[in-house]
Structures are given as C-alpha cells and as structure tokens.
Write a protein that binds this DNA or RNA. Structure first.
Lengths: 257, 257
DNA sequence: ACAAAAGTGTTACTTTTACACCCATGA
DNA sequence: TCATGGGTGTAAAAGTAACACTTTTGT
C-alpha cells in the first residue's frame, strides 16, 4: 500500500525533509444542505477525528505547505486560505499519540524521533465549494469526510480548540471581508448566499436588507439567468465579480473610524 | 561582560534549550510626543535595527516566551500582547547574518549550528505605556531605543515587513477592540486619547464625536480630577474601567451583522 | 387552487457627521 | 489681556432595521 510506504518514509526521513517542531493544520469549511461542514479525517488508531494537517518542507513557505495539504485532501488548487492563529502551548501536542499510532502500524519509531517532539502548529482555514471537493484520506486515517460543525465531533489533541478559533475568526471576518462567496459554486442564488451567511453567523437575517447590503458592496453581479428545475419561483443567479472582490479583500468592507 | 557569556551560551546550548526553527518577534508600540514609537534594537554588527525577539524554551508557551522577552527589554510585566501573524517564508531569515555577527563577536559558530537554520517567526505586537518603559539592550545590540514609525528606520531581514503588518493589524483592530488605553498612563485626558487615535489611524477626528463615541463604549470613566500644571484650561482625567474593558475585549466594540 | 419560496420599496429609527461658542489657564 | 486649547449640544444626513404584498412554480 502506497500510503504505508509514504508513512514509513515520513517517520524515518521526515526529520531531514521538514522543519522540526512546526506543523500546519487546516480547518476546511464547506456548505451543504444548509449546514456548515468541516472536512475531517477519521484517525486509524483512535476513535477520534482530526484536522487535515502536515509539515513544512525545508525550502517551502508555510502557505505553500498548506496548499499542498489541501490539494492532497480535496483535489483542489487555488483555494481561499487564511492563516488565523499559531498555537504554541507546550502541552498541545500529544507525544504518545504518534507513538501508539506507529506501533499499531508496525512502523518503528524510536526515542528521539522528530515526530515525538513538541509541535507548534500554524492554523489556517480554507473556504471551498463543497460540490467541487473529492475528499481523500491520508496515511494515518481511515477516511476523510465532511462533518457537521454544530455539534462538531470529538477531535484529537487540541483540534477542537483550533476548530473553534477558526470558526470564531470566520464569523468575525465575514462582516468585514467579502468571503462568503468562496463557499458557493460559481453561480448561486441570493437565498443560497443568505442561508450561508445565516448559517455562519448562527442567526436569521432579513431578506431584503441582506440583498441590499450585499449588492451595495458591488462584489457580486446578477446574471441574466434563473435557476431552473427548482420548486417554486425561479430565483436569479449571481456570480461574483473577481475584480471588485479582490479590491474588497484588500480594503475590507466595514466602516470603522 | 555578562551579555557576551549569555550569547556564547545561547549559540552553543540554545539548540538544547529552545524549540528549533521557531522564533518570536515583538513589535512594541509606545506613544510619546504625539507620535507613535516603536522599540528597536540597534544591532551591533550591522548598521540596521531589529525588532526585539527571542526563542521559545522547550517547555514554554509561545506567549510566555514573548512575555519573557518583553520583560527583558522593557522591565514590564502584564503587557497587552497580541499575536498577529506567523511569518513562514523560506527566505525570510538571513543565515549569513548570525554567522558574521558571531564571527565579529569572536564566538565560534559551526556549520549545522541551530542558529543557522531557517526560522519561522511568530509575530506579536505589544502596547505599552511609554513612560513606564526602561529600554534594555540584548546581547547582540548596542542599544534599545524608541524610534518613530513614520518613517521607520531600515530593519534587518524582513522586520520592516513584520512591523508594517503589525501596524496594519493595530489600525484595523483599533476600531473594533478597546485597545487604545493600553498605550497611555493610568490616568489620561480625553485630548490625549484622541491624539493617540488620530496618530494610529493617521487622520484627524472630530473632538466632540470622538468623545461621544469613546464614552458610549463605557470602557473609560471620568475621574473627579483635572490635569494640573498644564497650560490653558485644565482637562479632566479619565481612567479605564478594567471590568468593562475585559468584556469589550472579548466581545468587541463594532457592529457588523 | 394552493402552498411555498422569491422578487420588490417605503417608513421609522438609529447612528454618524458636521459644525460654533464659551470657558479656564498660563504667558 | 490674549492666545491657546478644552468643554459642551444640536441639526442634517446617512445608514440600518422593520415590515407586506405580489409573482411564480410545482404539486
């Protein structure tokens, strides 16, 4: 099995390939069935889930490492990615976890192995179009799948903490940054976008006010199509204006002083 | 000289004491003479300045490491501290710099020394009461002093980049977080606070509107004293309400959806 | 025909901005 | 006494929040 060979290689050679004591973890958000979802790995040797993550190659930028991990787990390039916090508590990483996992894998891991060190992890969140993702597990997991956020499953180590902080950051940034559209397909309807905002913020919004506000940002444009094959009145489709969007990403939307 | 002994120890033993390839850097902001200042080290062996920084002890939290560095450079405890970004570009650290610096110090640094590795640095900014700070240099610097921000001096490596990002973050957060007061003495006047906000944001604000808005947050309270020994009409003194302030820190000030 | 969701404007309310005069103090 | 900065309120403008009816479509 290719994955196991990879794993063995990482355990034995990782110390030469990767920066020591630093990892990246990624909270991948998707939106489906009117729910926010997060992509999690089901770990092989423990009844817990974990965030997709990885290590930084010696000549690689942290952002590149995350993109690489993301590509591996979702098949996607060019994902909206945001670093949100670096977790540097001394007791956050669980040294025993790797030890027992490797033992069960039948891979030798000796005292002093780089994986048994304490790790500081850089947290990123990603916003992806649910329908475009093809989840793929990694060497240490049974499966990679979407999970609901509320409630989120029990995660290994401090990953629940990381997940919560990611969600908090997302909620805060949603009001000032034009990020909502990243979670939807290229063409989407106004009610879909609104549902998304309501879901992230966890509260209902007025339809008319929502529409006015979103449109006032100028980052999305109404297409001349409607969504077909749908019950009830056909809603218009919108897409977002990449140029205006990029400006808004730089300058923000909110007011403030 | 104690500092040199320390330095030699860090070069030779640091690999055992600290997390490898990770550093912390701290942008320390102060306010004086109606200007935002930043505390910088004048490096010994190059005509550049640098941000105060350090490394994380093997059993120490990243935040603790920064507090320790801050204590060493400023003499202060319990400073307002905020992690703002982690810099993980592969070429950000300058391997030659340490090498030549140590050569000039007469300290042997051999190939493979931990200091010659690539470093990822966790950026923090600190807000301090200028009048309370007693700047102290470290082993690699001639002096530690306040410098103007606009323009900021040339800094080593990517420290100008770090500084700029810190300032940007500060500006953004100022509108949503009750952080202004951290830069002033315990008792301050409304015009002082306003000057501070104007300086950080780089634009003038209306006196009456500023006062109304700040007071509406409820985080500062008017004292029954006025500032004495001052020219012109004596302004009232204010102090900030720690309880309300802590609430606001958690919940933010701004609106949004 | 009806149930369910989408489209659309107006009004009241709240927040923000703009603006000017008097007062106290030190020089 | 005068120059300088500090204290204070109000009115207009902008932005936000609340709200209802009509249209379309599938069943």
């Amino acid at each position: 099995m290719a994955l196991k060979k990879d794993l063995k290689n990482i355990v034995q050679e990782g110390g030469k390939m990767f920066l020591p004591s630093i990892s990246v973890d990624c909270v991948i958000f998707g939106f489906h069935g009117n729910e926010l979802k997060v992509l999690l790995l089901q770990m092989k040797h423990a009844s817990v889930h974990g965030l997709p993550g990885g290590f930084i190659l010696k000549d690689e930028a942290a952002d590149e490492a995350v993109s690489r991990v993301l590509k591996e787990r979702t098949g996607l390039d060019n994902i909206f990615l945001q670093q949100f916090y670096t977790f540097g508590e001394p007791l956050r990483s669980d040294k025993k976890m790797h030890l027992t996992a490797m033992k069960k894998e039948g891979i030798a891991i000796v005292k002093g192995n780089w994986l048994l060190e304490r790790f500081v992890t850089i947290g990123y969140y990603a916003l992806v179009d649910f329908s475009q993702v093809l989840p793929m597990q990694d060497a240490l997991s049974i499966s990679c799948d979407w999970h609901p956020l509320r409630p989120a499953p029990a995660l290994m180590m401090d990953h629940n903490n990381i997940l919560n902080k990611a969600l908090e950051t997302l909620q805060q940034q949603l009001s000032y940054q034009p990020i909502g559209c990243n979670l939807l397909p290229k063409k989407f309807t106004m009610p879909e976008l609104q549902k998304l905002y309501e879901t992230i913020l966890g509260k209902p919004l007025d339809r008319r006010n929502f529409q006015r506000r979103i449109l006032s940002y100028g980052i999305i444009k109404k297409l001349k199509e409607v969504k077909t094959g749908v019950a009830h009145k056909a809603p218009f489709l919108y897409s977002f204006d990449v140029k205006k969007y990029d400006e808004a990403l730089r300058d923000g939307l909110g007011r403030g002083w």
